Each structure stands twice: as C-alpha cells, then as structure tokens.
Simulated scan of single mutants.
Amino acid sequence: MLSGGNRGIGYCIAQAAQARGWHVSLGLRDPSVLPHGLDPQLTDLHAYDATSRSAEAKWVDATVARHGRIDTIVANAGLFTDTSIIDAEEGEVDTLLEINLRAPRRLAKAAWPMLRACGSGRVAILGSLSGKRVASKGSALYSVSKFAAIGLAHALRLEGWDDGIRATAFCPGLVATEMGATAAGDVVAAKEMTQPDEIAHLVLEIIGLSNSASIAEMHINWRTDGIF
C-alpha cells in the first residue's frame, strides 16, 4: 500500500515495486486515472485523502478484500510549507501534522493486523533530512512535522519488532520533484538534487531485507551537510 503514488518519489516507488513483481495498492486523491507507465494488472487505485480520518481504514479494508493480505505500507504522501514557525496559524499547523504525522499513524494502525499476520511486515515512512535538523527559518515548521514522522517510524519499529514488523524512516534532502523545487526556491537545479528513482531503489532494497537486517533510518543527501 502506497500513499501519493501518482508523481514524484511515490510514483517511482510504485514503478520500482512493480518491476520486482509487487502488486501496488495506490491511495490517491484522484483515483480515476492510472498513472502513466504503471501496469494495470499490478495496480489498484483507491480514493485517499490524508486529511480524512476514516480514509485509511476504508483503503485497508478494500485492499484486504481484494488480496487477503498486506505486506508493506509506504507512507509517502506529504505536505511542505515555508510559513514561519511563529506566523503560522493553528489551522495550518494542524493540516501539516494531519498529513505528515497522523495519517501515516492511522495507516499503520489500520494495516497492523495484516502486517503482523504475514510475519515480515514492512513500514516505510517518508521523512526528510529536515526531520534530523532545522536547516533554515523557512523550513522550521515543516521540520517539526518531519521530526515527528521520524519518531513515528521508530515507535512503530519497536511496537512491531516481536511480530516481525520492521519500520524505516527514509530521510532525503532535496529531491528532484515538485516539492523539492518548491523547497529549493529555484536556487538548486533539479539535476543537482537526488533523483526520485534513487530513493525508490533504496526503499525497495530495504523493505526486501530479512527480519535480521533492520535499518531504522536511511539518510540520503545531494550535498555535504554536517554529518548528513
């Protein structure tokens, strides 16, 4: 199950998964159109709004009804804002946390029985290097939400360990996507950023590891940046 798979990193993850024979259940805001290049025989499309607190359970139920199992969830859908941590209104903060933190937790909660049942369930949370350090005033509020998302990945890893569930927080810097371009503010060329297909490759490699090779965090950067 993959949220936000119609473009950017999520789309590349869907492509990479299908190249390895995975059936992908996509949660999209507009499920009426199959993203170009995806195999219709290996794709389910479901309406998914990360701000709707009943969306995750409905999506999980539909996926289980179709396939009878869930092996991996990838919480990829996310929201970026450059609003000041001081100037942001509560509504904007709530929306940011709803999409970047609460929706992934709800997805994990809804899918948990299936992840536990398979004995090797996998959870991938798309965090950010902004969740490891606050690099600028413009990214501060976004960083707060991604710090929380990375904490969620660690919490899920501990919660599911005895049942064979492994969770990883993927923490890229700037990636050559629409969100990456917005975050860079036209200062960094797309060709200099990490490419989304590289993130997808790492996600598929890590979720394919055995239960005895757990990776809690994966940091990916396009530049030298402190310890990252």
Rank of each mutant, 00 (worst) to 15 (best):
L96T: 11
R105N: 10
A65F: 14
H67Y: 15
A124L: 10
D94K: 06
G138Q: 11
H67V: 11
K109T: 13
T95C: 05
R105A: 15
K132P: 00
L79N: 02
A110V: 11
G121D: 10
C118N: 15
A124P: 10
G119E: 12
I86R: 12
D71N: 15
L129A: 02
A88P: 14
L79V: 10
I125E: 00
D82S: 14
R116L: 13
D82F: 04
A148Y: 02
S136Y: 07
V93K: 05
G121S: 07
G151H: 01
I86G: 05
G91M: 03
D87K: 09
K137M: 12
Y142N: 06
A135V: 11
S120Q: 14
L96D: 08
A77Y: 03
V144S: 09
S145Q: 01
L97H: 09
P104M: 04
E89M: 03
L101A: 05
A153D: 01
D94Y: 05
L152P: 01
E89N: 11
L97N: 10
A153M: 00
S130R: 00
F147D: 01
L129D: 02
I85T: 13
I85W: 07
N100Q: 09
V74F: 04
I73F: 08
R105D: 10
A103F: 04
G78F: 02
A88Q: 12
E90R: 07
I73N: 07
A140M: 13
P104R: 08
A111M: 10
G78H: 05
L96Y: 07
A153Q: 00
S143H: 04
P113T: 09
S120T: 14
A124H: 01
R66G: 13
P104I: 07
A103H: 11
G68T: 09
L152C: 03
V144F: 04
A110Y: 08
S120C: 15
L115P: 12
A124M: 14
E98H: 10
A149W: 02
M114A: 15
S130F: 01
V144W: 07
L79G: 02
R122N: 04
N100T: 09
L115W: 08
L97C: 05
S84V: 06
K132Q: 06
F147M: 00
L96S: 08
F147I: 02
G127M: 00
A75L: 06
L97P: 04
A103V: 10
A103D: 14
G138R: 13
A110K: 09
I73C: 06
P104Y: 06
S143K: 02
A65H: 15
D94F: 00
V64Y: 14
S136Q: 07
A124Y: 03
L101T: 10
L129S: 02
A148L: 06
D87W: 00
L101M: 08
G121M: 07
